[in-house]
């Protein structure tokens, strides 16, 4: 296995330089008969925001869900190839998927707080993994997470009110707080702003930029402007293939591929 994985790794200069947090080597995903992802090779650097863009159905969400193995839940989904997190194969039989998901958090398209209190929403992950040794500990984790998600000042007086009672933007930031409460290394975001208004979007984008300092972030987005604003690296997917990947600035100003150029200038997509 190691020789093949090295071969994959060599395909990406960053991976070879050891800067990659996550690498994907020849990743293929089938949903039943449908070949959803075709031979993806991609390296994702630590403490950067990597944006995955592309038209609907291009496989960017599928790729995102490979990284924390959420595809396992879809009946008939088959993933081949190699994905590593810190050079460790995440599809290894030995690897515990629960541990993987504690290291790789996820924020979904639609804000999905549990129908519990704000406090319990954030405290759920730490309780699950036994991260807090005392109630005071737990409270500190909750408060810090809410602060880092930029939500604490808005909700500090009503932590015991249901999370579902917040506005859409607040709910999404609550979900981000819930994800970072587990102290993951990577946060996957699947179109986190698509259900939010522009003001809430701006807040979440600002937050993403701050979170970069401590987390590696992979974000799927339909908004090119968003990708340009928040990400350092951008990968363009089309029909299940990775067409082009590079620094965001380069992708948006000087795309190498005709398809990329067409997409970012709005000619299709």
């Amino acid at each position: 296995m190691s020789t093949t994985s090295d071969a994959y790794l060599r395909q990406d200069a960053d991976a070879a330089a050891g800067m990659a947090k996550i690498t994907a080597g020849d990743v293929n995903v089938h949903y039943g008969d449908k070949h959803a992802l075709k031979g993806i090779n991609l390296a994702i650097r630590a403490n950067e925001v990597t944006a995955l863009i592309g038209p609907s159905g291009c496989g960017k969400s599928t790729f995102l869900r490979c990284i924390n193995r959420m595809n396992d839940l879809i009946e008939g989904a088959r993933v081949t190839g190699l994905i590593t997190l810190d050079r460790q194969d995440i599809y290894d039989r030995e690897l515990d998927v629960v541990q993987l998901r504690a290291r790789v958090g996820m924020v979904f398209q639609k804000p999905n707080p549990f129908p519990k209190s704000i406090y319990d929403n954030v405290a759920y992950g730490p309780r699950l993994h036994g991260l807090a040794h005392s109630t005071a500990d737990l409270e500190e984790i909750v408060v810090t997470s809410l602060e880092r998600a930029g939500l604490y000042d808005e909700v500090k007086d009503r932590l015991d009110e249901p999370g579902t009672g917040l506005s859409g933007g607040q709910q999404q930031r609550l979900c981000i707080a819930r994800a970072i409460a587990v102290s993951p290394e990577v946060i996957l975001m699947d179109e986190p702003c698509s259900a939010l208004d522009p003001i809430a979007t701006a807040k979440v984008e600002e937050l993403i930029d701050e979170l970069r300092e401590n987390f590696t972030i992979v974000i799927v987005t339909h908004s090119m402007q968003q990708a340009a604003r928040v990400s350092q690296r951008t990968a363009f997917f089309h029909l299940g293939e990775l067409v082009e990947v590079g620094d965001t600035e380069q992708i948006f100003t000087n795309p190498q591929h005709k398809l990329t150029q067409g997409y970012i200038t709005g000619r299709f997509g």
């Binding site: 839940l73 993987l100 998901r101 979904f108 999905n112 549990f114 129908p115 699950l128 819930r178």
Partner: peptide
């Protein structure tokens, strides 16, 4: 998405079922 949220945080299937 309740299930996804729970599993995404690292809950096992049993925890997902009994907690949520």
């Amino acid at each position: 998405w309740i299930r996804e949220a729970a599993l995404g945080l690292g809950a096992s299937r049993l925890q997902m079922v009994t907690h949520h």
